[in-house]
Design a protein around this nucleic acid. Sequence first.
RNA 1: GUGAUUGUAGCUCAGCUGGUUAGAGCGCCGGAUUGUGGUUCCGGAGGUCGCGGGUUCGAACCCCGUCUUUCACCCCA
Length: 449
Amino acid sequence: MKPSLAKGTRDFSAAEVQKRQFIMNILREQFELRGYDPIETPSFENIETLTGKYGEEGDRLIFKILRSGDFTSKIDERLWAEKNPKALTSKVADKALRYDLTVPFARYVVQHQNELAFPFKRYQMQPVWRADRPQKGRFREFYQCDADVVGSDSLWQEVELIQLYDASFTNLGLSTTIKVNNRKILAGMAEVLGISDAFVAFTVAIDKLDKVGVEGVLKEMRAQELPESAVITFGQWLEEGLTLERLTQLLAESSEGNLGLDEMNFVLNQAKMGLKSSELVFDFTLARGLNYYTGTIFEVAANGVSMGSIGGGGRYADLTSIFGMKNTSGVGISFGLDRIYLCLEELNLFPATTANAAAVLFANFGAVESVVAYQWVAKLVASGIRAELYPDASKLKKQFDFADKKGIGYLALVGTNELTASEIPVKNLATGEQTTLDFEGICSLVKGA
RNA sequence: GUGAUUGUAGCUCAGCUGGUUAGAGCGCCGGAUUGUGGUUCCGGAGGUCGCGGGUUCGAACCCCGUCUUUCACCCCA
């Protein structure tokens, strides 16, 4: 058996876990400062909880879990013979790994609605799974860190979430651009263009503008079989440039479009005040594929790194109604932990990690010496100092190498001359400097590291 | 899901148009050095050439399949 990892998954070394925790600690602090409380939900849900919430593409990427036992007995011959994967899925799989944190959260809110104080604010930092094809910054298992508010349709929630993005990325040292849009503006555009029934196709096309340009978008619209009149009109709009002012004129006839513009203006005006490092921009091409968004939508890109978005989110006015709870609006944002990690790594923004620098390794010189050395270790550990005894009386070179590899800051030597001594030599492994210290001296030396 | 791409020692990679017992550097283990490392020198271990088929007298090398890597598309964190 040759050891190997499943496609799109990774192991994390001690150093990597410590860096991830660095990010999570900053996010947690910002979440809790604003009154978000932590919750967790299971890794897998009933399959019907997840399917149909993310659009067709999303459903395809949900990891399904095979039924245990003889699932073939539940399939009749006729269904089997049809070989229709969609129809067979529910017979073969009844559970699925979570695809994001938002839908399980909506389920949670509905299920616990009587216990919760609304508006309910929570954060969640857990892995999610997608049966995607891995790429740069794209994995099949990755962490999302989400903050959501449910039970308030106030636009102040949007404002707070933008501030939360800004404060978090500022503390991480990342310079970002926060793009915002409103799905009602997009819906208003579709309405005025007379293509409301092809709204999704329209948003898919418009989302590509920065990548393929005006011609590319129009080509995509034609490929999606949108009416030529709409394509031509929209082409003219794009040529003129679509600012908020211009959209106000164009969408005058659309009540939904107007509402979207009012919301957008409020959010932009309130949120832009007090931003520390982020650039907040209105971007009418921002669409986001997740089906459940209805109002404001967000997406965050790191400046100076070529990486997909490192965060995203939006307003979902009615996600809980699928689970039977009406008129409950929610809004939330997600931080992509793994991509933030890659950005910080690429820009060299992690603080120098010296996690084990404040630790002492006691060299092992043999049976008699190790007894005394272990007494020192036990005493240090009892005083809250990281200390350990090298287990074998190996050659000193090997013991040094072990300490180096583990990043341990100090090596203490208890040899035959120190069996009864109250002071022992302690060597700083980084500088090579060696001093003879008593117990208190070692404590203050290591604590100062 | 579509189209490419990658896979040789623990790591990074050589390996000419298919031709004997597949190599290097680093790392690892041992020794020079039985109480002070990161230098140097000497010696050693370690490989079903991703996996499974096929073509051939002969395959790391050619063909097919499969898995994995990376990338573009799709979509997305």
